[in-house]
């Protein structure tokens, strides 16, 4: 027992070593990602930033198990990732909700699909629908929700499914500024409460500094990880703070120098 816990503490929740992904497009090979190394500890909030086409989505989709690496190793708690699974929940930019299910049924989809007892599913639904503030909309269908509400459902859906790692690919990219700020705040609250491990892809430097424990900077052609830095500002963070600004300049420079 103590032994097991020792191993868990010593292991990284995610280990990515030497991961390369090559697509072929019209017969030509495209190197989407080359030699990526990344180790993520349990409970970390990691942001991936980088210009368009640098392989952020590709990396996330490989961790999710939707794509397989062309080279390298990708493991969770030391076990190789071999396909999608409920331990790694994904929040898509375009939500990916099931339009024929109500908010409640979308949230309960994972537990129900995995054969959890009915009463447990109902309790889980209630807990997570409440957590994302959609209690009044539990019976609404996705087409009746705003973008922000849909993304709340998508987040609740992976939380309800007991995902240990939450993979988020520009989840707030399609939302207006005010909704985005609210969701960023709520996501941080949820993360602080649940101590999930979050991998969050974004274009926006400010969003990354606001959220992350650690920021991984990528550059394109071919996609590579070029920097990996901790953000030690105390939370809640204030974008008008001079230290915040200093970080913003630092990451701008990191991004710019690799263009």
């Amino acid at each position: 027992m103590a032994d097991g816990m020792m191993t868990q503490a010593a292991l990284n929740i995610l280990d990515i070593s030497g991961v390369t992904k090559c697509f072929s497009f019209n017969g030509e090979p495209i190197l989407a990602l080359e030699g990526a190394n990344l180790a993520v500890r349990k409970g970390e909030f990691v942001c991936l930033i980088g210009p368009s086409g640098c392989g952020k989505s590709t990396l996330l989709r490989m961790i999710a198990g939707f794509e397989t690496p062309s080279e390298g190793r990708l493991s969770m708690w030391g076990a190789p990732v071999s396909g999608p699974g409920p331990d790694r929940g994904m929040v898509f930019q375009d939500y990916g909700l099931f339009p024929w299910l109500s908010v409640a049924r979308n949230v309960g989809f994972g537990p129900a699909a995995r054969g959890r007892p009915r009463a447990e599913v109902e309790a889980t639904i209630k807990r997570f629908v409440d957590m994302v503030g959609l209690t009044r909309f539990a019976d609404a269908y996705p087409h009746q929700l705003s973008g922000g509400m849909k993304q709340r459902v998508a987040i609740a859906r992976v939380l309800a499914n007991e995902a240990e790692v939450v993979l988020m690919d520009e989840p707030f990219g399609a939302l207006d500024a005010m909704t985005r700020e609210n969701l960023q705040r709520e996501l941080l609250e949820i993360w602080e409460r649940t101590r999930l491990t979050v991998l969050f892809v974004t274009h926006a430097i400010e969003e990354a500094i606001l959220l992350a424990d650690r920021i991984v900077v990528m550059s394109p052609g071919p996609g590579r990880i070029v920097a990996d830095e901790l953000v030690s500002l105390p939370r809640p963070r204030d974008p008008t703070d001079p230290e915040f600004n200093a970080l913003r300049r630092r990451f701008s420079a990191l991004l710019g120098s690799h263009h």
């Binding site: 699974g85 929940g89 898509f92 909700l97 339009p99 994972g110 699909a113």
Partner: peptide, 27 residues
């Protein structure tokens, strides 16, 4: 295609995908 990914990451087995995703989506 996104719905297949969503179902897979939520733990739907390949054999259940038809009833849980394809059929309702095609309704």
């Amino acid at each position: 295609g996104r719905l297949f990914e969503a179902a897979a990451m939520l733990g739907v087995s390949p054999s259940a995908v038809f009833w849980k995703v394809v059929l309702p989506a095609a309704l």
